[in-house]
């Protein structure tokens, strides 16, 4: 008798778990506005990528054409496949001392695997991941970019 009771319990439990699954998929089915698919070329104007999306490495500049990069080269060391080359130079500060500064932050987009290690390693937060993803070009030399804008310099108060 106990066995029969167990048997009936198994049947009801089984049906219950199946209904739980159907409830979840059903909730997806009947809420079509929650779909994740993007109709890409059509919604190109309004498409907003997600915050954590890794499109490319960029170096933000403020309105005075200043960035946060000290030219320390940690990002270059951290890059697993050599996508980043740092060319630094020395500049004279106001009190006559020599100081290292960034000359060219070269970024090879064609080699980048978007692993995010350079962004994590950067001590001053000078480079971040941008949201641009339409990277197709006719000439692959265009994939080598210099991230710091011409004539830019380091912002005041950035500690080494």
């Amino acid at each position: 008798m106990n066995g029969l009771f167990e048997y009936i319990k198994t049947v009801f439990k089984g049906v219950g778990t199946l209904l739980t699954g159907m409830k979840i998929t059903g909730s997806y089915f009947f809420r079509p506005w929650k779909h994740v698919t993007q109709q890409y070329p059509e919604n190109r104007e309004t498409l907003k990528m997600f915050d954590r999306f890794r499109g490319e490495v960029i170096m933000p500049h403020n309105e005075n054409n200043e960035h946060l990069c000290t030219g320390c080269g940690i990002c270059e060391l951290n890059c697993p496949n050599g996508s980043i080359e740092i060319i630094s130079m020395s500049v004279l500060t106001e009190d006559g001392k020599k100081k290292r500064a960034i000359d060219k932050h070269i970024y090879h987009l064609g080699m980048c695997t978007f692993c995010n290690l350079c962004v994590k390693a950067c001590p001053t937060g000078a480079i971040i991941m941008g949201q641009e993803f339409e990277h197709a070009v006719w000439d692959r030399t265009k994939l080598t970019k210099v991230l710091n804008l011409p004539g830019s310099k380091i912002a005041q108060g950035v500690k080494e």
């Binding site: 998929t25 997806y28 089915f29 079509p32 929650k34 779909h35 994740v36 698919t37 109709q39």
Partner: peptide, 13 residues
Amino acid sequence: KVCAMFQQRMGPM
């Protein structure tokens, strides 16, 4: 279409 809807996709469009 139904399969896509269950998986939060849109199916053939």
